[in-house]
Lab assay of single mutants.
Amino acid sequence: MDVFMKGLSKAKEGVVAAAEKTKQGVAEAAGKTKEGVLYVGSKTKEGVVHGVATVAEKTKEQVTNVGGAVVTGVTAVAQKTVEGAGSIAAATGFVKKDQLGKNEEGAPQEGILEDMPVDPDNEAYEMPSEEGYQDYEPEA
């Protein structure tokens, strides 16, 4: 019985440690998101679009440190934060509304985080759909 109880105690310690790591990862992701939003706020009209992409990228980098179902929630929060940063930029006159959601080359930025393969159960990952990809044929 002692062996059984000791095993359960060790398992509990492992769960607590994993929860603490997840909590730490979420806190880091939130900190990076805040950094990115402050970065966007300090940019001029020309830099705002690039700044919004930076927020998304920093958040995406930190999301990889967070495991399990938390990833889905962090990704949703990050996307809403990026959308909010863009709205703030438009409201303050840093950028025109028609410039939001495009990178410096004018290509749409939507789907940055949505296409990231995420499995809350950590069982399997699927690649994003290939609808947006084109076949590449090298020139002879």
Rank of each mutant, 00 (worst) to 15 (best):
residue 74 V to P: 01
residue 106 G to M: 06
residue 86 G to I: 14
residue 122 N to D: 10
residue 5 M to C: 01
residue 77 V to M: 12
residue 119 D to L: 10
residue 20 E to V: 03
residue 81 T to C: 09
residue 41 G to I: 06
residue 135 D to W: 07
residue 60 K to E: 01
residue 86 G to A: 07
residue 60 K to H: 05
residue 69 A to C: 05
residue 16 V to S: 08
residue 79 Q to F: 12
residue 29 A to Q: 02
residue 119 D to H: 09
residue 47 G to R: 13
residue 1 M to D: 00
residue 110 E to Q: 06
residue 62 Q to T: 09
residue 134 Q to W: 09
residue 87 S to C: 11
residue 30 A to F: 14
residue 53 A to N: 12
residue 61 E to Y: 05
residue 61 E to R: 07
residue 16 V to N: 04
residue 113 L to C: 03
residue 135 D to V: 09
residue 38 L to K: 07
residue 48 V to F: 13
residue 76 A to F: 15
residue 47 G to H: 14
residue 56 A to C: 12
residue 126 E to Y: 04
residue 8 L to E: 00
residue 31 G to F: 13
residue 41 G to R: 11
residue 126 E to C: 14
residue 69 A to D: 03
residue 71 V to Y: 08
residue 7 G to C: 15
residue 17 A to S: 08
residue 135 D to A: 04
residue 81 T to R: 03
residue 16 V to W: 13
residue 118 V to Y: 09
residue 33 T to G: 03
residue 67 G to D: 01
residue 67 G to T: 13
residue 138 P to Y: 07
residue 93 G to A: 12
residue 66 V to F: 11
residue 90 A to E: 05
residue 55 V to Y: 13
residue 134 Q to Y: 08
residue 117 P to R: 04
residue 102 K to Q: 02
residue 17 A to V: 10
residue 67 G to C: 11
residue 8 L to P: 00
residue 62 Q to A: 09
residue 37 V to W: 15
residue 136 Y to K: 09
residue 56 A to M: 14
residue 138 P to W: 11
residue 22 T to K: 00
residue 78 A to P: 02
residue 84 G to Y: 15
residue 36 G to K: 15
residue 73 G to V: 14
residue 132 G to Y: 13
residue 83 E to R: 05
residue 35 E to I: 15
residue 75 T to D: 03
residue 88 I to W: 14
residue 67 G to R: 13
residue 28 E to W: 04
residue 45 K to G: 03
residue 104 E to V: 08
residue 75 T to S: 09
residue 124 A to K: 14
residue 46 E to D: 11
residue 78 A to V: 11
residue 139 E to S: 11
residue 103 N to S: 07
residue 83 E to A: 09
residue 57 E to N: 08
residue 120 P to K: 07
residue 20 E to M: 09
residue 46 E to N: 11
residue 76 A to V: 11
residue 38 L to H: 03
residue 136 Y to A: 05
residue 134 Q to G: 12
residue 60 K to P: 01
residue 79 Q to R: 09
residue 57 E to S: 04
residue 19 A to M: 05
residue 85 A to C: 13
residue 79 Q to A: 08
residue 96 K to C: 15
residue 122 N to S: 08
residue 105 E to S: 04
residue 95 V to N: 10
residue 72 T to M: 15
residue 129 S to V: 08
residue 113 L to G: 11
residue 122 N to M: 10
residue 17 A to R: 07
residue 53 A to H: 11
residue 50 H to R: 13
residue 23 K to M: 15
residue 69 A to I: 13
residue 11 A to E: 00
residue 106 G to E: 07
residue 68 G to C: 04
residue 17 A to C: 06
residue 24 Q to E: 07
residue 12 K to Y: 03
residue 86 G to F: 14
residue 84 G to N: 12
residue 113 L to Y: 09
residue 29 A to W: 13
residue 120 P to L: 09
residue 31 G to N: 12
residue 16 V to T: 08
residue 46 E to A: 12
residue 121 D to M: 08
residue 139 E to A: 08
residue 21 K to F: 12
residue 74 V to M: 15
residue 99 Q to H: 13
residue 54 T to G: 08
residue 96 K to S: 10
residue 131 E to F: 05
residue 38 L to W: 06
residue 7 G to F: 06
residue 73 G to T: 14
residue 51 G to C: 15
residue 74 V to F: 14
residue 5 M to K: 10
residue 80 K to H: 07
residue 75 T to G: 06
residue 114 E to L: 09
residue 13 E to K: 06
residue 56 A to Q: 06
residue 139 E to H: 06
residue 37 V to G: 01
residue 85 A to Y: 09
residue 99 Q to V: 13
residue 123 E to R: 04
residue 111 G to K: 09
residue 64 T to N: 10
residue 3 V to Q: 03
residue 38 L to M: 13
residue 135 D to I: 12
residue 1 M to Y: 00
residue 117 P to W: 10
residue 69 A to E: 02
residue 36 G to P: 01
residue 109 Q to V: 12
residue 10 K to N: 03
residue 39 Y to P: 00
residue 32 K to W: 15
residue 51 G to S: 03
residue 31 G to T: 07
residue 92 T to I: 04
residue 138 P to E: 04
residue 15 V to A: 03
residue 132 G to K: 06
residue 28 E to L: 07
residue 42 S to N: 15
residue 53 A to R: 05
residue 126 E to T: 07
residue 67 G to H: 08
residue 15 V to E: 00
residue 44 T to G: 04
residue 105 E to P: 04
residue 60 K to N: 02
residue 61 E to S: 06
residue 138 P to K: 05
residue 16 V to A: 06
residue 71 V to Q: 03
residue 98 D to W: 12
residue 86 G to H: 10
residue 14 G to Y: 15
residue 17 A to E: 06
residue 31 G to C: 01
residue 81 T to D: 01
residue 140 A to R: 12
residue 19 A to N: 00
residue 114 E to Q: 07
residue 36 G to Y: 07
residue 58 K to M: 15
residue 79 Q to D: 03
residue 11 A to Q: 00
residue 24 Q to R: 12
residue 11 A to C: 15
residue 4 F to L: 06
residue 70 V to L: 14
residue 77 V to G: 03
residue 8 L to Y: 01
residue 27 A to H: 08
residue 69 A to M: 04
residue 39 Y to M: 10
residue 117 P to E: 02
residue 20 E to K: 03
residue 43 K to W: 14
residue 100 L to Q: 09
residue 126 E to H: 13
residue 38 L to Y: 11
residue 5 M to G: 01
residue 69 A to N: 05
residue 60 K to R: 09
residue 89 A to L: 14
residue 110 E to T: 13
residue 140 A to T: 13
residue 122 N to Y: 03
residue 92 T to A: 11
residue 24 Q to L: 08
residue 127 M to G: 03
residue 27 A to K: 07
residue 88 I to F: 14
residue 66 V to N: 02
residue 5 M to P: 00
residue 89 A to N: 03
residue 108 P to R: 09
residue 34 K to D: 00
residue 132 G to Q: 10
residue 82 V to Q: 06
residue 124 A to W: 12
residue 16 V to Q: 04
residue 55 V to W: 15
residue 43 K to F: 14
residue 54 T to D: 01
residue 73 G to P: 02
residue 28 E to H: 07
residue 39 Y to T: 04
residue 41 G to H: 12
residue 69 A to T: 07
residue 10 K to H: 03
residue 99 Q to M: 13
residue 134 Q to I: 11
residue 108 P to N: 13
residue 72 T to F: 03
residue 138 P to L: 05
residue 30 A to V: 14
residue 53 A to Y: 15
residue 10 K to G: 01
residue 139 E to R: 08
residue 124 A to F: 13
residue 49 V to I: 13
residue 42 S to I: 13
residue 130 E to H: 10
residue 74 V to H: 01
residue 43 K to L: 14
residue 59 T to V: 12
residue 20 E to F: 13
residue 2 D to E: 01
residue 46 E to W: 06
residue 67 G to N: 04
residue 33 T to V: 14
residue 37 V to M: 09
residue 16 V to R: 08
residue 135 D to N: 13
residue 58 K to V: 09
residue 4 F to C: 01
residue 15 V to Q: 00
residue 33 T to R: 01
residue 42 S to T: 05
residue 66 V to T: 03
residue 123 E to A: 06
residue 33 T to S: 07
residue 140 A to Q: 05
